[in-house]
């Protein structure tokens, strides 16, 4: 079975922003934050500082503590993909979403093949069990 270390998850602190795509595109993100663009109108901004979205007065900006994340190496990504991902893996940088070991998850893929693996805290125990 998996040759690599299983991923180690921790609860992530960040902000969830739902706004017009163009406003998200233009938003000045706080220094040091990491932006995961979940969909054109949906961003998960990892970092403690509250971001603003000047381009959309109706934007939803709310703390987001619902995700657990694990930094995974390129080798770990390859290993997870080989054993646990039924869908075809895209090439980074990009955000890929789908089931991993049957658990709805997101993979924030970097250009070097490493990634941030995201899962809802409510299902974290299942993903840990299945990847462990």
């Amino acid at each position: 079975m998996p040759a690599c270390e299983p991923p180690r998850f921790e609860g992530l602190v960040g902000w969830r922003i739902i706004a017009d795509p163009s406003a998200l595109d233009a938003a000045p993100w706080p220094a040091g934050s990491h932006v995961v663009r979940i969909s054109p109108d949906d961003a998960f901004v990892i970092g403690a500082a509250e971001p603003g979205v000047p381009g959309d007065e109706h934007a939803i900006v709310t703390p987001e503590l619902g995700f657990a994340g694990a930094a995974v190496s390129a080798e770990q990504v390859a290993d997870i993909a080989l054993h646990h991902i039924e869908w075809q893996m895209p090439t980074g940088p990009c955000v890929a979403q789908g089931q991993i070991a049957g658990v709805p998850s997101k993979l924030v893929l970097h250009a070097d093949g490493s990634a941030l693996l995201l899962v809802a805290c409510a299902a974290r125990h299942e993903l840990e069990d299945r990847l462990g």
Binding site: I18, I60, T62, G66, A120, A123
Partner: peptide
Amino acid sequence: LKVHVLDRTVSH
């Protein structure tokens, strides 16, 4: 219609 939607069932 122009409505932003955020399902935060598992975040709260």
